[in-house]
Design a protein around this nucleic acid. Structure first.
Length: 572
RNA sequence: GGCGUUAUAGCUCAGUUGGUUAGAGCGAACGACUCAUAAUCGUUAGGUCGGUGGUUCAAGUCCACCUAACGCCA
């Protein structure tokens, strides 16, 4: 049995994610996890909320809540939405968990012991009114270059010139608007990534099966300019993981926390530990997934993420792990996605543009979204959501091809033979030909699923559904019935078994509909097929069934127009 | 400004290491069927592959330049 460790990029705690975020990591990761489980492999599928950093603090302040309380609430909101989309995480953790605190501090201590941490004094802007240091992007002022009066400390959005906060004319806090700012000296820890450059380079080179896009991004960061730069891993904030050297204090770093990008990927590991604690298992249960010296040698680790996250997963996090000199499991395959656009523009969290996860579930069940998003996943380039495309895809693929197939065969059987599987004669030539063709399609489907070729998998699955309709159309049991009822019975029995087959094969994409199909044949689950001969003999003569309710309702033009108008503007 | 990605039928997309008449689904037209959610199945019509110029016996597939859109610049 294969063992698959699967993680999805962890969504930031601040606000509800849109469909572009969903299809960029969590949803395809879920597809892969469900497929591997269905194949009988052992899977640990982890995700979590990324909770630290300034944006979380500001969002909490805006909501008038303590940041810990705000994060706890938003975590529950995101967990409920994940459940709503049937994301089958074994655990949905939190980067603010005690387990991640301990592990992050452990890694920092270990890196320091390896001589990979340096302490750097630097000057940063402090706001007396806000009582805090301000990150560059939270300082506003007039651009010295173009005169734009809302330039940020890191860059002017108007003329795009890179800035230093001290360049700004009349700088003010973007949080409070206060101009009572001063420059203070503060000390921070840097991870000496430059020392690790060669080891990272060699590690990247060992990944010959990675997409060019992925390795080229990593290579660029490694070699461009002065090469990989050391990176600050601490911040002057209140909300975060306190800077400690393992279990010990870190002299001079009191009151500081680790930077969110240092602790967030470590949560991938800590999440497994959270999972164990939640399940009442001991540490060995998660270490056999993460420690190559404790049983993780045969684990295949796959990460899913949007393309914007690639550098952090190919360099930053590996730098932490390699630098620790401890036998942690490192990523084997990295599947990254491009962006999904919305009706001619970008999805945007900050501007509230597009469809958000909660809104999507309010208007349609998760299967509809899962199917469209996965069958149009932005794998090779950015892709585009339009309501017309969504409507026609859902109506054609789900309602007409899959839903209607189940409907037509069960209703036909009920009217001619009653609500039990008829016997009939043995399979003939047409049936054997169908079985041969389906065996080939199954192999193709599995090949694409194993390779995480999401769109191609969807295409192949759809072709499998279509072959059911082709078969019925070709043998026409409604005609056969008039002259050869025994043969019509056999054709009907095969048709019903095809519905079972579709239920099993479709489960990674549309789990709810799959479950309903299987339920109507009195089955709560059905093993993944080894071959067509077996699975198409699942239903035996006399087995009872019921005609399921409409599996997928069509989207009407009125609904489409209504939704298009409703989601055309900005949220709230 | 630097770097990078993309540009293939009306729409959404496939097109391995360059090699016979460039593929699929949707949409369209026509036909078949009538069990079914007016569903299904079949046939046909539509692209010379953003532009220009090269390399080659041969380029959508390699090179240069141009145009357009988008992204990244810690």
């Amino acid at each position: 049995m294969e063992r698959h460790l699967i993680t999805s990029a962890i969504p930031y705690i601040n606000g509800i994610k849109h469909l572009g975020n969903l299809v960029g990591s969590q949803l395809p990761a879920d597809l892969y996890a469900r497929y591997q489980r269905a194949k009988g492999n052992e899977v640990l599928f982890l995700c979590a909320t990324d909770e630290h950093g300034t944006p979380a603090e500001l969002a909490a302040a805006k909501a008038g809540k303590p940041v810990a309380e705000y994060c706890a609430e938003m975590h529950e909101v995101q967990a409920a939405l994940a459940k709503g989309f049937r994301l089958s995480f074994d655990h949905f953790g939190r980067s603010s968990s005690p387990q991640n605190h301990a592990l992050t501090q452990h890694f920092a201590g270990q890196l320091d012991a390896e001589g990979l941490i340096s302490e750097v004094s630097e000057k940063q802007v402090y706001s007396n009114t806000d009582g805090r240091f301000l990150p560059d992007r939270y300082i506003e002022g007039t651009c010295p270059n173009c005169g734009y009066d809302k330039a940020r400390g890191d860059q002017c959005e108007n003329c795009t010139k890179q800035l230093d906060p001290t360049d700004l004319i009349e700088p003010r806090s973007a949080i409070s608007g206060s101009t009572d700012l001063e420059v203070r000296e503060t000390k921070h820890l840097y991870l000496r990534q430059s020392v690790l450059k060669d080891r990272l380079d060699a590690w990247i080179d060992s990944k010959s099966d990675w997409p060019v896009l992925t390795t080229s991004i990593a290579k660029k960061w490694l070699h461009d300019g002065n090469g990989l730069q050391d990176r600050g891993i601490t911040r002057d904030l209140n909300w975060g993981i306190p800077v400690r050297k393992g279990n010990a204090d870190w002299p001079g770093m009191e009151g500081k926390v680790f930077y969110v990008w240092f602790d967030a990927p470590i949560e991938y590991i800590a999440c497994a530990s959270e999972w164990c604690d939640a399940q009442g298992l001991d540490d060995a249960a998660w270490e056999r997934w993460w420690r190559t010296d404790k049983g993780a040698g045969d684990v295949r680790y796959t990460q899913f993420m949007g393309k914007d996250n690639v550098p952090f997963h190919t360099l930053s996090f590996p730098a932490t792990i390699l630098g620790s000199n401890e036998p942690w499991k490192m990523v084997d395959h990295l599947k990254s996605f491009n962006f999904l656009n919305y009706d001619g523009g970008q999805f945007s969290t900050s501007q509230g543009r597009g469809i958000f996860m909660d809104q999507a579930l309010e208007i349609l069940p998760s299967d509809y979204w899962r199917w469209w998003l996965l069958s149009h996943a932005p794998e090779n380039s950015d892709s585009e959501f339009t309501w017309e495309n969504f409507q026609s895809t859902v109506n054609k693929d789900l309602a007409d091809v899959l839903g209607n197939f189940v409907s037509r065969i069960t209703k036909f059987c009920r009217s001619k033979f009653g609500e039990a599987v008829p016997a009939g004669c043995a399979f003939g030539e047409e049936e054997e030909a169908l079985i041969a063709s389906l065996n080939a399609r199954l192999a193709e489907y599995e090949k694409h699923m194993s390779a995480m070729e999401v769109r191609k998998s969807a295409q192949e699955l759809r072709a499998i559904w279509t072959s059911g309709n082709e078969y019925l159309q070709s043998v026409a049991p409604w005609t056969t019935f008039k002259t050869d009822p025994d043969r019509a019975a056999m054709q009907t029995r095969l048709g019903l078994n095809l519905a079972v087959l579709f239920g099993v094969l479709s489960s990674p994409f549309v789990p709810d509909a799959s479950a309903r199909i299987l339920e109507s044949f009195g089955r709560s689950s059905q093993p993944w097929p080894q071959n067509m001969q077996d699975i198409l003999g699942t239903l035996q003569p006399e087995d009872p069934f019921t005609v399921p309710e409409v599996l997928f309702a069509k989207i009407t033009d009125d609904q489409r127009d209504d939704w298009q108008a409703r989601f055309s503007g900005q949220r709230d």
